[in-house]
């Protein structure tokens, strides 16, 4: 840390007003520029369903949706998200957007400690919104940035595969001329 000797922390660290739409609601909060989005969500907004596992984008525990796309909330500062729409596991649960994924994860026990689960669900949700019927390899690829120490991944892959299949057959029955 070459700048160490020169470093004098600001005694009064200034915060800035940040406004975003979180889980469908307008939210304003004061954040220090150095506060990561994951810390802001977990601490200021009390959305503790988003987890911090590595703080460097390697584990996927902190994934949220930013303007509809999965991103690491540890790899951006809250101020960068000013003006954006953010959906966390809490919002995705309440809206019902991933209820079939959650039910299938539950039925197959595709989670143990549950710490990776919100991030897994965000990745799964993004995959299925882009690829209706992914192969098992495509599912594993989509999860390649989501670390799970407990399950061995197979049940997670099974659950996502089953939901993809169920959604596809449901959309056929809904009159889709497949």
């Amino acid at each position: 840390m070459s700048e160490r000797d020169a470093y004098v922390p600001d005694e009064a660290e200034e915060t800035v007003r940040v406004r975003f739409v979180v889980n469908g609601r307008k939210v304003a909060c004061d954040a220090s520029p150095r506060e990561t989005l994951v810390d802001c969500l977990r601490t200021t907004l009390e959305l503790t369903g988003t987890h911090a596992g590595c703080e460097m984008g390697a584990c996927g525990a902190c994934l949220v949706q930013l303007d509809g796309r999965a991103v690491h909330s540890c790899l951006m500062f809250a101020v960068q998200a000013d003006g954006a729409a953010i959906d966390t596991i809490e919002g995705l649960s309440e809206s019902g957007a991933i209820s079939d994924l959650q039910a299938e994860f539950h039925r197959r026990n595709a989670l143990q400690c549950g710490f990776c689960t919100p991030g897994m669900l965000v990745s799964a949700h993004e995959l299925l919104s882009q690829t209706a019927r992914p192969t098992r390899d495509e599912i594993r690829d989509a999860l390649s940035g989501n670390y799970c120490r407990c399950t061995g991944y197979e049940a997670i892959v099974d659950a996502i595969e089953a939901v993809a299949k169920a959604r596809a057959s449901a959309s056929c029955e809904d009159g889709g001329v497949a």
Partner: peptide
């Protein structure tokens, strides 16, 4: 039988020590 306590974790309602304030 599925784990009764897993639904909480799936909804982001886990209560880990790292969440505690």
């Amino acid at each position: 039988v599925p784990r009764p306590n897993a639904k909480r974790l799936l909804a982001g309602r886990g209560r880990y020590v790292s969440d505690l304030r």
